[in-house]
Write a protein that binds this DNA or RNA. Structure first.
Length: 393
DNA sequence: TCTGGGGTCCTAGGACCC
DNA sequence: TCTGGGGTCCTAGGACCC
């Protein structure tokens, strides 16, 4: 199993772990007994490692297919339009699977269909039914109808927990039931999003193919602390740290922010202790991605919502109302926060930190960072550290 | 004792305009 | 007794995704 940050809960399970009945998102402490007995092995999440392997997979996909939309760290859509005239789609699917396995060493599944929602369902089937050989092609006559009938409603992309419960209560239990439902009725009773899902299940594309990732609308950094914080000072350190991280991302995205929000909260699950959550936001006079300014503003916001007497569990910093850093709206009457000097300084800061792995920081981020997250079962950085390369005998 | 992090889109309702 | 119609923008909160 793979654990979330802070080794808090389960976020990924092997087939064996699933067979043991371990549930997704369950808190780790509830299954620790299996580890103690030696029946289960856990890993802390290691996004540097996963990100690197993900990039390798995507690179292979881009070599094979002209149009790739990277959808998430472990999923991509390939646009195969026109390809059916040139080759057998099943065979193409197998080729994708084999190339990724040969070149990166990761097993993948392939689902082929006329819409994204159906392709996701096909992919689910490819994973679920081993007879498929890891490739399911719904463009073949009769396949789509058959799969819809045997797929539970929960497996449909866009149907979450809440909608699934509600749909089942009205007797819509399978993907086929949903596909046959009235679009307008579902649109009124649920949302236009679910109405679109119906059309997608019928083979009418409503979700476009987007090769270029859209510009982000918000950037945030939040963390659960390794242990509860009860004082203002370490909370301020954490907020500075998160503002610093988020500002880094902002610069990576070549964006500026014009609104900051800061939130803090106690454990929402704790029944026996006082609970508190709050958020403070402010608009900036002119947009910026200057770490110094953003850290200062974030702490000022924190100070307005901090209350003593609580055991804080988590805090976060959100930057929104983003604008491109090369063309933004400034204020005629306020000095620009984003000066040439700022840009130069931030650029220098980022390049040092990139090369020397976070060597430069602000003292206010805290020298000890006793609240920093725990990762007790970290796997080696096999592909991103010379010291931790895998050994081949 | 102990429960992640980072996003998106949609909707309802309020405030406002003429 | 009785008070219009058409619109925009913003925000919070919910649902969903990985």
């Amino acid at each position: 199993m793979v654990l979330s940050n802070n080794d808090g809960c389960i976020i990924s399970r092997s087939a064996e772990a699933k067979a043991m009945g371990l549930k997704m998102a369950a808190p780790y402490y509830q299954v620790r007994e299996y580890v103690d007995r030696g029946d289960l092995h856990v890993f802390s999440s290691n996004y540097a490692l996963y990100g690197d392997l993900s990039a390798r997979v995507m690179e292979v996909l881009e070599l094979i297919s002209p149009q790739v939309e990277v959808y998430s760290i472990d999923e991509a859509f390939l646009n195969l339009q026109g390809l059916e005239a040139l080759c057998e789609l099943d065979q193409f699917g197998m080729e994708v699977k084999e190339k990724v396995f040969d070149w990166v060493g990761l097993p993948v599944c392939v689902g082929i269909a006329p819409t994204k929602t159906l392709a996701k369902l096909a992919n689910y089937a490819a994973k679920r039914y081993s007879d498929s050989g890891g490739v399911v092609n719904l463009t073949k006559t009769g396949w789509c109808e058959r799969l819809l009938k045997i797929s539970p409603i929960e497996e449909v992309w866009g149907v979450g927990r809440k909608s699934a419960l509600k749909l089942r209560a009205e007797g819509i239990n399978t993907a086929a039931d949903l596909a046959m439902s009235d679009v307008e009725t579902i649109g009124n009773r649920y949302s236009v999003v679910l109405a679109r899902t119906i059309l997608e299940l019928r083979g009418i594309g409503c979700i476009g193919f987007e090769q270029e990732p859209a510009a982000k609308q918000q950037v945030l950094c939040s963390r659960t602390f390794s242990s509860r914080i009860t004082e203002l000072r370490p909370l301020q350190e954490a907020i500075r740290e998160y503002a610093f991280r988020a500002a880094e991302k902002l610069r990576q995205e070549e964006r500026l922010t014009s609104q900051i929000s800061v939130y803090i909260r106690t454990n929402p699950n704790a029944q026996s202790e006082p609970r508190y959550r709050n958020v403070a936001s402010c608009a900036l006079p002119t947009p910026t991605n200057d770490s110094r300014f953003l850290m200062k503003q974030a702490v000022a916001l924190l100070n307005t919502i901090y209350r003593s007497g609580y055991r804080y569990m988590k805090a976060g910093v959100v930057f929104s109302h983003l604008q491109p850093s090369d063309s933004y709206q400034s204020d005629l009457f306020a000095p620009d926060l984003q000066s040439t000097k700022t840009n130069k300084l931030m650029k220098t800061l980022d390049s040092i930190n990139q090369r020397f792995n976070g060597a430069v920081m602000f003292a206010g981020q805290g020298m000890e960072q006793t609240w920093a997250m725990q990762r007790n079962f970290l796997s080696p950085r096999y592909t991103s550290s010379w010291q931790e390369l895998p050994r081949v005998r």
